[in-house]
Design a binder for these strands. Structure first.
Lengths: 198, 198
DNA sequence: TTTACAAACTACAGCCTATAGGCACAAAGC
DNA sequence: GCTTTGTGCCTATAGGCTGTAGTTTGTAAA
């Protein structure tokens, strides 16, 4: 009986490929076992069940994304950093839809702190910081950016833009332009004080 | 043998409640059957399997959201309409997390056309239209709005904002303010022509 | 060579979706 | 009132999934 050479890293890698090929729900321990020509039960020696595996895939994806950012961001600031940041996200989500889906999983506090999510968040903060918002407003700017990117990518890959023209890609730059100009002219005071800021 | 009184409508309603209580993945035909004290197989007479059921729940949720919009939007325009539109979305997602999740399911073209999704999209278009963008730009504005709302709600309910201060709610108005001012000062020409608009 | 750990196995239990075919209740026709 | 017919819900079953327990077997160190 030859050993199959299972490893946490190999399992995560294979799971990520499976997710990209057939969608995250297709990632099952059985399918993974089939791919390694091994019995499902054998996987439990290397990974904490399906949930643990998916957590690892998520962390793996975040790390890949962080690496992509580390490649593209240095030397950029302001608008060009913002576009690079956003483009890296969208490109990753398009190239690796399954991994991207995995990265959206709700993750435990500890796991979040330990994963590359933190460094991505700090990147975003640094970019927004370059726009010179007040310190209190920076976090709001980061959240605007994060919401727009995540929302756009989710809607695009979910087909939400498929039934209106023009294609989604055409809107991407316009949306980022809007975010950019919004950060440059950040509304410091509530322009319509009839709605209290809660 | 008493009849349980299964009905498509009752099944969808119960599934929606189940989704809100325990999350969308908890919606299984078995769980539903248990709730009606019926055998799983019986459900297939009323609904096209689990997938068909979830599609119905999604349509149901979109209809509820459209109804909420129809309640709150009339008489409003501009910023106040934008806030009402966005608030209705977020409130619905918070009040009915499972239904909201269901509504995010990728849905077939025909189903999308038939569902209330279309009327919601038209609401968004009407609101953006009030900001006086050029006709070509309206769709981009709509997509900006949609992306920001969906993204924010997804991140908030996924706990994405939990580990930074202040609480997510505080950012909500700021994000909407930013979208509002972005629409009012829509960047008509690319302010930095070094990046071509694709 | 022997020992001992770890990798992978068999065997199950339990839950899920889905299909096929049967029984029985309820309203429509005689 | 009795029969017919449709359909609501049933049983039975097949097949896939996760996860646990206990066992065999490689392999590497003593």
């Amino acid at each position: 009986m030859k050993r199959a050479g299972l490893t946490e890293a190999r399992l995560v890698q294979a799971a990520a490929e499976l997710a990209d090929e057939n969608g995250l729900p297709a990632v099952t321990l059985s399918a993974l076992a089939r791919r390694f020509d091994v019995r499902p039960a054998s996987i439990y020696s290397h990974v904490a069940g399906l949930d643990g595996l998916l957590d690892l895939v998520a962390a793996f994806a975040l790390q890949e994304l962080a690496d992509a950012l580390a490649e593209t961001l240095p030397g950029k600031a302001g608008r060009s950093a913002l576009f690079a940041f956003a483009d890296a996200h969208r490109a990753y989500a398009i190239a690796h839809p399954g991994r991207w889906q995995a990265a959206q999983r709700r993750v435990s506090p500890e796991a979040a702190a330990g994963s590359a999510g933190g460094v991505i968040a700090r990147s975003a903060r640094a970019i927004v910081s370059g726009y010179g918002l007040s310190p209190d407003d920076e976090v709001h700017g980061v959240r605007l950016l994060g919401s727009a990117i995540n929302g756009f990518v989710a809607l695009e890959s979910g087909g939400g833009f498929d039934h209106s023209d023009p294609p989604a890609a055409a809107s991407w730059t316009r949306v980022l332009d809007a975010i950019d100009s919004s950060l440059r002219a950040w509304p410091t005071a509530d322009p319509h004080p009839d709605r209290p800021t809660d």
